[in-house]
Amino acid sequence: MVESMGRHVLSVRDLAVEFGGDRGTLRALDGVSLDLHAGRVLGVVGESGCGKSVTARAILGILDRAGKVTGGQVLLDPGTSSQQDLVALDPNSQTMRGVRGGRIGLIFQEPMTALSVHYTVGNQIVEAIRAHRELSKADARNRAIELLGEVGIPRPESRVDAYPFQLSGGLRQRVGIAMALAADPQILIADEPTTALDVTTQAQVLALLRRLQRDKGIALMLITHDMGVIAQMADDVAVMYLGRIAEFSPVRDLFARPRHPYTRALLRSVPSIRAEPRDRLATIGGTVPHPGARPSGCAFHPRCPEVIAGRCDQSAPRPVPPLEAGAACFLNEGAA
């Protein structure tokens, strides 16, 4: 699957994150490895607590105060002379500020998180542009109008002076995308960018994201819980469960031949607009355990329909090796 990959722009290796609290530490990420390539979309999918958002925040150095990277690397421009390990940088350093929003753009679920209510859309984009590029205010304003047009906002020359609350949810998310693109980043991380939107607006925003990603050759990391969004957008998919990658596959394989029992179960439990009325759904028994009560062995074993007693509960399966398709599951390691 490595044949048609674009330039390797980001490498996450064995990333571990812990959250400290009154009741001890929680391991939120446990040895996650991921790769982003120019012009490709990496979909990261999983249920709550799987660590998909924590991965994004750890990459960008914006974990909550209680969270801490306890191991691993986040390599920007891996294998080049300008390779940088973002984990080694102070999250508040000048360099890291330049990376965040400069090299790596960020799109949130609720664009109001990224937008201030007190400033016009234009002022905020101008500020984002000038934080990363040396442009005069007038030039930055023109660039902001250009960006608003690029993300499909009608009448950008008047909307540039609007406040975020004057815009609908769909337009706000378009502004969020324009902000993320302000410094022409090669990498975009979008965390549930359409979850808060209605279905027709979601379709518009997904189409926009894909067009921009293709036109600009951006490496997009798209985090979602929605298998439909994954199928429509991703080139490669990482399925996460309780802080680890359960499966990594090209998108067609993932849907045609899912490798991990969790992926199979997850795909079967999605309600379908093609269902017969009153069709039952396949379910996964139990619920996602709390990260503080991580089951022994393979964390999915108490819910797994294909569990091998004496094995899956005893030892953890090998993680999926970076840059290879596979599943962290004993069924895929062959008889041993």
């Binding site: 209605d198 027709t200 298998m227 439909g228 199928a231 993932l254 795909l267």
Partner: peptide, 25 residues
């Protein structure tokens, strides 16, 4: 029709067929 077309289908073979109606509610 527009609502049904806009739902992202969990099938990568149906890519680029999702169509969104223009404009906003």
């Amino acid at each position: 029709e527009a609502l049904l077309a806009a739902v992202p289908k969990p099938d990568p073979e149906l890519r680029d067929q999702a169509a969104a109606p223009r404009g906003e509610v």
